[in-house]
Every structure is written in C-alpha cells, then in structure tokens.
Design a protein around this nucleic acid. Structure first.
Lengths: 143, 143
DNA sequence: TACATATTTGTAATTATTACAATTACATTA
DNA sequence: TAATGTAATTGTAATAATTACAAATATGTA
C-alpha cells in the first residue's frame, strides 16, 4: 500500500486531519527518507529549512499522522523511537554495531498464532537484531 | 529452554557473573513473576523485602543478567522497558486498553527472511498489539 | 475578508535511564 | 579466621526523551 504524496493528502483530508504546512513537511520528510528517522533527526533536518519549527510540533505531527494510520511508530530500542511511513508489513533489522535499520519483507500473517484466538490483533511487529553485512566485512578486515 | 533456578545459578557461575544477593533476588523475581515487569515494578516489590535496594542496582542486575543471556529486554512501547526470563522464542501481545502483556507461542524461525542473506541475526522479536479478550468483553458489556 | 477552529510555539515539568565516586560485600588465599 | 583485591551496590546528580499547557498563530470556510 505504497501511496503517492497526493494520495496521502487526500487521505488526511478524508479523515479530517488538517493539512497544515508543518504536518505536510514532516510527512514529506518521511516519504523521502526511508531510513526510519528519530524525532531528533527529523527535527534537525527540517529545522534547517523551517527555522521556526519546534520539536513539539514534530511530535504533534507524528502523533497526528500515526493516529490517521499513515505513519508507524517503531519501538526497537529504548530512547530512540523511530518513525516510518505505513507500508505493507515488513520486518526491521537493526545492526547492533552501526545502528542502521534495514527493512526485510516478511509475511507476518502467514505464521500461526496459537493462543491468540480471542484477541483482537491490530498491529503486528517483527524486529531482529544482529550485525549487518557491511559491519561483518569491517570486522573481517581487522583480523 | 526453561531453566530451574539452580540451573541458572550454575550458568551464572560458569559465565563468571557473580552471584550477589541482589542479583539473585532480581532473577528470582523474574522467575516468579511472568508478567514482564518494568524496572519500576521490580524495584517497588523487591524494595518491600530489601529496604536497602536501590533502583540503580536493579538496572545493573538486569543488564548483567541480560549480558549473561538469562534475561531478555523487551521493548514494546517507549518509556517502559520490560524484562523477561529468556525462554524459547515466543511472541508478545500487548493489550492497548489494560496494558497487560501476554505470551503466545510462535515459530519465528519458520518464516522466510528474504533479504537478510548476509546478515548475522542474533535476536528475533515479535510483538503484536490490540485488545485482549477480557477488555473486549468489558467493551461488550457497556453497549 | 472575518470568524471559529485547529495548529504551533516555547517553556516547564515529568520520567526513564545512565554516570560516577564512595561505600560495602564477596571470595580467595595465607 | 583475618587480610586482601575485586566486584557489586548505593545514592546523588546529570542526561535525554517525551509530555503538558497556555498563549500566539495559521487554517479553511462562509
């Protein structure tokens, strides 16, 4: 369910979420940066363009967008909540060395969920941790 | 890989982790409380028994135990890291209403992980969110 | 353009976590 | 058992992320 930027705007309108300037900027930022940024990163980058942007607004915007179902809140590690556009379900892999986060495709609905028969499941998350190929190479070079 | 308390002590010794009183108490607490407690909960409960226990010690102990591979650090939501004994892989379900966390069995190794061929995967996590049966019932009663 | 409403700002408060130095307990060896 | 070196614990203070809130501003609509 990858959406165009215009589709997303229409969706926001439909859900009665205002299309304020800053809100759209945050959304646009996420659309252009698929690196799962933290609030800090989003704020730092957008602040260069929009001098009056406050961090609170970044939080507000992200929460509003998450509420509208356009943005997913990623909690992989403490002290660094990350944000991502809502797309088809995929897993996240975090490299313990360089901290980068990678997507990988995964059919989460495929696996059996014994013991959750009477639960209303609204969100599914999968995240792995380990070392990415790039860091593995570096380690090998240092031997 | 459910372990007895004695097994765990042996394991700690083997890995050169000291068996201090407080460390064991924290471990024992986790063994007896499978509710995925937060640091706050562990501290509050153990403090009743051990008046001199400090919160820092709880953090230290949990980190040492996690290092030793006996405890798993659960990050489902911000601002509430939770801890669990390391057992066979299972998923976690968090109820958005009452906040309770449930385990469910899942064969994480079963699903294909396309796109992670050259990655060194060291940890796999699955967590779902939604509403638990008990809260679903309550909602129905209020209709 | 004017109005009602929603958004943004900025500051202050809250909370979880970590850093660190001083104290205390532990295990080992004489 | 006492002495010794190492590791654990404590307590306080610092850091950092997030939230609350009231005042100022921007937004969309009539």
């Amino acid at each position: 369910m990858r959406r165009s930027f215009d589709d997303m705007k229409a969706l926001l309108k439909q859900r009665n979420i205002g299309l304020s300037h800053h809100r759209l900027k945050v959304l646009e930022y996420l659309a252009e940066h698929h690196c799962h940024p933290t609030v800090e990163q989003i704020y730092a980058d957008l602040h260069k363009e929009i001098a009056t942007l406050s961090k609170t607004t970044v939080y507000n915007s992200l929460h509003a967008l998450a509420e509208a179902g356009l943005v997913r809140i990623l909690t992989i590690e403490d002290n660094e909540t990350r944000y991502d556009l809502e797309t088809e379900t995929h897993g996240h892999f975090k490299c313990e060395q360089c901290g980068a986060i990678f997507n990988f495709t995964i059919d989460i609905d495929a696996f059996a969920t014994n013991g959750l028969k009477h639960f209303d499941i609204r969100e599914k998350n999968v995240y792995f941790k380990g070392v990415c190929p790039s860091c593995l190479h570096k380690a090998k070079d240092n031997e």
